[in-house]
Design a binder for these strands. Sequence first.
DNA 1: CTGAAAGCGCTAACAT
DNA 2: ATGTTAGCGCTTTCAG
Lengths: 337, 337
Amino acid sequence: MGSRVTIRDVAAVAEVSPATVSRVLNADERVAPELRERVLAAVERLGYRPNSQARSLRTQATRVIGLIISDIQNPFFTSLVRGVEDAAQASGYSVVLANSDEDLGKEQQYLRVAAAEQMAGVILSPASSSRTRIGELVHEEIPVVTIDRRIAADVDSVAVDNVAGARQAVEHLLQTGARRVGVIAGPEDVSTAADRLEGYRAALRAAGLAVDPELIVRGDFRIDGGHRAAARLLDRPDRPDALFAANNLMLIGTLDAMAERGLTAPADLLLAGFDEMSWAGFAPPLTLVEQPTYEIGRLATQMLLRRIAGGTAAAEHVVLEATLKVRASSDLVRRAV
Amino acid sequence: MGSRVTIRDVAAVAEVSPATVSRVLNADERVAPELRERVLAAVERLGYRPNSQARSLRTQATRVIGLIISDIQNPFFTSLVRGVEDAAQASGYSVVLANSDEDLGKEQQYLRVAAAEQMAGVILSPASSSRTRIGELVHEEIPVVTIDRRIAADVDSVAVDNVAGARQAVEHLLQTGARRVGVIAGPEDVSTAADRLEGYRAALRAAGLAVDPELIVRGDFRIDGGHRAAARLLDRPDRPDALFAANNLMLIGTLDAMAERGLTAPADLLLAGFDEMSWAGFAPPLTLVEQPTYEIGRLATQMLLRRIAGGTAAAEHVVLEATLKVRASSDLVRRAV
DNA sequence: CTGAAAGCGCTAACAT
DNA sequence: ATGTTAGCGCTTTCAG
C-alpha cells in the first residue's frame, strides 16, 4: 500500500539527483531549464505524487488546517465551511472538518487529533466559552482562531456583534408594537448565547421596559430545545406578544411549537430570529438577524494563515456586523398589504 | 512548531532504548513490567505524544479514513457521518470529512488529497455514477466504499433499496386515490435518482397506469431545483393530484412552491418524499421513505475496515431496506379525523 | 547550478 | 527480553 513511485525513481528516470527533483517540485528558481524539463517529464510519465507525510516529517510543517465546528447539522456552520475552504485552498492548504456536536468530549478528542496530526492550525467554534480546553494545541504551538464564539483563552476570534444584532431585532419588535417579548436564549456557557441575551436586555432597558425573568427561557441551540423553550413561553397564561429566538434551529423549534398551537406570525405574535434560514423557504418569511457567514470563515482563515506564517502579535478579535432583515413574521404593515 | 519531545527523549529519561519505548507504546507484550513502568512514567512526565507522520511514514499506513460526502448541507448525510465516526473510532481510526458539494471538480480534488495523504481508506458518496473517478485511490491501493450511491467501478457499496422504497411511496399515493402522480426526480447521473425514478415507473406500471413523461421533472437534489421542478408541475393546466419528491431537500422546495400557490397537502394534492426530515418539524407531517442512515454509515465503515485489513474478496453490495412512513401529507383519512 | 549526505521521528529486522 | 541499526520519502545544508 502506498505511493510506490518516489522521488528517487523520478530522479533516476530524469537522470538527475533527488535533490534536483525536489527543487523543481518546490519551485526553486535556480535549476537549469533543461533539467527542469526532464524532471517534469519524468514526473508526468511515472505519475509521481509527493508523499505528504515524508514532506511534513522533514519540513516539520503540514499544510492542513483543522476546522472543528459545533454542529454540522446547522446550516450556519456549513456555510462558514465554504469560506474557510476557499481561503485555505487559495493558499495551498487543505481543510479537514470535524463535528463536535456541542459535546465537550468530542471536541477534546478532535483537538487532540489536531495536535497529534501536527496540523498547521485550527479553526474552532468552541462548545463552551469556559470549559473548552485548547491546551494541547498551545503546547504544540499550533495556532487557533475561534469563530462565531469566543473562549476565555487569549486567542484570535472572528464573530459578529451579537449584542448589537440581538438588540436591533428586539428593538424592532418593540417598535412594531410588542410589549412582552419572550426570548428563547442559548446555552449558558456559549458566548453568542450570552451576547444575544445581553442585546435583548439592552433593548428592553433602552425602551424603559423591565426585564421579566419569566420571559427568558434557555434552549440548547437545537430544534428540540427551541421547541420546548417556546412551548413554555406560549403556554403561559399571559402569553408574550413577540418571540425572539437566539438562533436558527431554535427558531425552527419555535415555529413548530407555534404550529402545534395553531398560532401564526405576525397575526398571533411577532417573531424574529438569528442566522440565515433560506433553507426553510416554505416557512413564513422570517425576520432575521443575518450574519456574513462566508466572510467569517474567510477572515478566520486568513488570520490563521497569518499566525501560521509566524505572526506573534497579541490576540485579535474581529467583529463583523450582523444585519436585521425585517420580513413578514414581524411586520404588521406588510402583512396588512 | 511541532512535537518537541521525541521517542528518544522518552528513552533517555526511562533509561531504555527507543525501540523499547516503541514496543511499550504499541502494546508489544514482550517487555519487562519494570521497564514498561519506567517508560510510561517518562511518557507521562514529558507529555510525550507520538508523531503520527513519522509513524505513518515508517509503517506505510495511516489510521485515518476519508469521508467525502456530496452535500454537507443535507441532514441525510450528516446523520450518516455519525455512524461512520462511531464505527471508525471504535477501531482506533479517525475520520476526516470533506464536502464535494455535488461538484465533480471538488470531489476529484478531495480524492487526490486522500491519495496524497495516504489515507487508510475512503468512504464516498459519489457526485456522479458515471463520471466520478477513483483512479488515484485505486492506484495507491486505497480501498473505497461508496455510500448511498453506486458508481460504475467495481467497489463495495452500502445503500438502501431505492427502487423498492420509491415504489412503495408511489403505490401508497395511488392507493390513497391519486391518478396523476408527478415526480420531482434527481440528477440523471446519480444512481439513487435513477433508482427512485425506476421505482416510480414500476409503481405506475403495476397499477396499470401509463407513465406520462410530462409528469417527470428533474431537479438537482437541492431546495432550489426542487422548487423549480415542483413549480413546473404545479403550474400545468392539468395539475397532478399527487407529488413524489425524490429527496428531502427537493421536498422542501416543493413545499415552498406549494406555499407560494396557496396549496396544501393533502387537501390540494397528496405528497410524499424520501429521506428523514425531522428537522423540518414545523412543516405538515410528511409521508416519507426513511433510511437507516446511521446504520449505513456504520456498515460502510466496517466494510472499509475489513478491506483495509486486507480483505480481497469481490466487491460487495449491501442493500438495506427503506421504509415508508405514512403521515398526514398523503393521508386523507387521518386528515379527516 | 547540481549532487552527496544527513536526518526529520518512528518501527522492524536483526543481533545479542 | 532488550538494544543496535537501517531506512520509510522527503528536503536542505554543504561541497563542489
